[in-house]
Computed example of a mutant assay.
Amino acid sequence: MESQNDKMEDIANSDIPKVTGVGGIFFFTENPKETRDWYAKNLGMEVNDWGSTFESRNIANPEEINSLQWSPFKNGSEYFEPSKKEFMINYRVQHIEKLVEQLKANNVTVLDEITTYDYGKFVHIMDADGNKIELWEPK
């Protein structure tokens, strides 16, 4: 019988292109600096110009540290376009190239090409409800 740890290890090491967690929560606000300051003062969040970063360990691979970025954006920021929603979620993924191929085969709107930075690869898609989604494969 397979143990819970074996199941988690199988999931963590899978070659299946998929979402592995939430990488960020982004939302509109009238004044991002005031919003960041409010959260720092009232909820004790450590903030910088981009928001706040929360770190956690992968239970199946304790050496792996994951992060979630919390970021308020100025109302009307073009970063969320073409979505008209007031939020955007960033999902952490594995095998982003294969995932994008799969999404295109499923007629999902892929908004841009995969972009690579020092901290990982990114691409943006639209879901069925018109939400822009950011996909991120950490380095």
Rank of each mutant, 00 (worst) to 15 (best):
M1K: 12
E2T: 09
N5S: 14
N5R: 14
N5Q: 14
M8F: 08
E9C: 03
A12Y: 13
A12E: 15
S14H: 11
S14C: 10
S14G: 13
K18Q: 08
G21I: 04
G21N: 03
I25H: 10
F26T: 06
F26P: 04
F26G: 02
F27V: 08
F27C: 06
F28T: 08
T29I: 01
E30G: 09
E30P: 02
N31A: 11
P32N: 08
K33E: 12
E34N: 11
E34V: 06
W38N: 11
A40L: 10
K41W: 07
K41S: 14
K41G: 04
N42I: 14
L43Q: 14
L43V: 15
E46V: 15
E46P: 10
D49A: 15
D49S: 15
D49G: 15
W50A: 08
W50N: 11
W50G: 04
G51Y: 04
G51K: 06
S52C: 11
T53L: 10
T53K: 10
T53C: 08
F54C: 08
E55K: 15
E55W: 15
S56M: 13
S56H: 07
R57L: 01
N58M: 12
I59R: 07
A60L: 05
A60M: 09
N61S: 14
N61D: 13
P62Y: 10
P62H: 11
E63R: 12
I65D: 00
N66R: 10
W70I: 05
W70R: 02
S71G: 12
P72H: 07
F73H: 12
N75T: 13
G76P: 04
S77D: 13
S77R: 07
Y79Q: 04
Y79F: 09
F80A: 04
F80S: 00
F80Y: 03
E81Q: 13
E81M: 13
P82T: 05
K85D: 06
K85V: 09
K85S: 06
E86D: 14
E86W: 09
M88Y: 04
M88G: 08
I89C: 01
Y91W: 04
R92N: 09
V93I: 05
V93P: 01
Q94I: 00
Q94N: 04
I96R: 01
I96Y: 00
I96N: 00
E97W: 07
E97Q: 14
E97I: 10
K98V: 00
L99T: 02
Q102C: 05
Q102R: 13
L103Q: 02
A105Y: 01
N106A: 15
N106P: 03
N106K: 15
N106H: 15
N106S: 15
V108G: 05
V108L: 04
V108F: 03
L111D: 05
I114N: 02
T115D: 05
T116A: 03
D118H: 13
D118A: 08
D118G: 07
D118W: 05
Y119D: 00
Y119C: 01
K121A: 11
K121H: 07
F122N: 08
H124R: 12
H124G: 02
D127R: 01
D127W: 01
D127T: 03
D129E: 12
D129I: 01
N131T: 09
K132N: 14
I133D: 07
I133L: 13
I133F: 03
I133C: 08
E134L: 11
L135Y: 06
L135P: 08
L135G: 06
E137G: 13
P138W: 09
K139L: 05
K139A: 10
K139S: 12
